[in-house]
Design a binder for these strands. Structure first.
Lengths: 204, 204
DNA sequence: TCTAATTTCGAACGATCGTTCGGTACGTGC
DNA sequence: GCACGTACCGAACGATCGTTCGAAATTAGA
């Protein structure tokens, strides 16, 4: 049931990790395109070139594969967000940096984001997904804290901070659905645009 | 493959339609909670009280059921939107009315919205969903036209109208994921809040 | 009351699903 | 070169999937 134990010999461990991540990336793409449940293990064997047994050597189960996708998405993003707000800086500066990091992450993990959004019903309700939920909530709390700090020091004024946070989460999360690798706007421009929208509205 | 022909006798036709809509509503709830693919016909028979055969008497197929859910969501919303912009009024008034109608519709069709968002990959890519895509795009065009009118008559100024539209679609569509029937904010308050956010940002 | 349209049942179908496992081939370190 | 940890294969398994269909039950209209 757990994925096969990774090799103990360090020379092989690197190759194992690399191959595993290839599989996860391929799965993320297929899941994003066709849906998690609608993608069969057969689809994955064809896309990876591995046979069923070889696939299970790396993933353990289909659900663990989904878990890895979510973790690859949330863990580095949360770490980066914590790093940003740990440095000294104004609420406005932090918001700006958070948005840039966030949008850059979404651009680099579009498929992961789409899968995460698509499988929300699993992630939000099943007990074995508590840790993933916790990470999502922790990230959202960081954002909310920054907005609250902006309110307290008087640089931002929101009619309703809770609603503003929801609006922010909505527009950013939705971005993965229309962002194109070579589109008109870069992730940076989008981040700045959203930031501008929020700050213009939150300025008396 | 098509749903059973509806009864010709008008006395039964009403009952047939009512029962069918009950099934669609139940399915929308289950699909929203567990996902479309993850919900089995067995789940549906248990939730509706109908046996397999009875179910197929009303729906034709599982995919047609999904189609009905999307149609119940988009068709009335698009009709209402067209009605709103057909009446005379400023861009700002129309935007305000559109937002109120939209949010009210989302509140009344939360499950439909969640299913629609969840199954985006099917709807956006499969050829048999062209008509649904067309409806979605038509609605978004109405919104974009209103924003463009606001820009032209000088009442709104956006740094990037395309990005603003994406932001608007994102925040509103995302609303179905956190809106609670007896929550702190009513659909009307949320609509007004989003409108305020947009107009404050789009005012020089 | 009789009949034909309608509603519902539920066993059964073939297809496909995720997963397992015994086996083979390969590379590494001794 | 030997032995063992590792990589991968692919047929096969039981479970479950969406759907069908002939028959039974119910109802409406004459």
């Amino acid at each position: 049931m757990p994925a096969a134990a990774p090799p103990t010999r360090p020379a092989l461990r690197a190759k194992y990790d690399r191959r595993q991540q290839e599989v996860v990336a391929t799965a993320a793409r297929l899941f994003a395109e066709r849906g998690y449940q609608a993608t069969s293990m057969q689809d994955l064997t064809e896309a990876t070139g591995l046979a069923a047994g070889g696939l299970y050597h790396y993933i353990g189960s289909k659900e663990q594969l989904l878990f890895r996708i979510c973790d690859e998405l949330l863990e580095p993003l949360l770490a980066r967000a914590r790093e940003i707000v740990a440095h000294p800086g104004s609420a406005e500066q932090h918001l700006h940096e958070l948005m840039r990091a966030w949008l850059a992450h979404i651009e680099a993990h579009r498929h992961h984001m789409l899968v995460f959004a698509q499988e929300r019903h699993v992630i939000e309700h099943e007990p074995q997904w508590r840790e993933v939920r916790r990470q999502r909530k922790a990230f959202e709390k960081i954002l909310d804290d920054v907005l609250a700090r902006g309110e307290q020091d008087g640089t931002m004024t929101f009619a309703d901070r809770g609603l503003t946070l929801h609006a922010l989460l909505g527009m950013v999360n939705h971005t993965a659905q229309w962002l194109k690798p070579r589109g008109r706007l870069s992730a940076e421009q989008i981040a700045d645009g959203y930031c501008d929208l929020l700050l213009r509205a939150g300025r008396t």
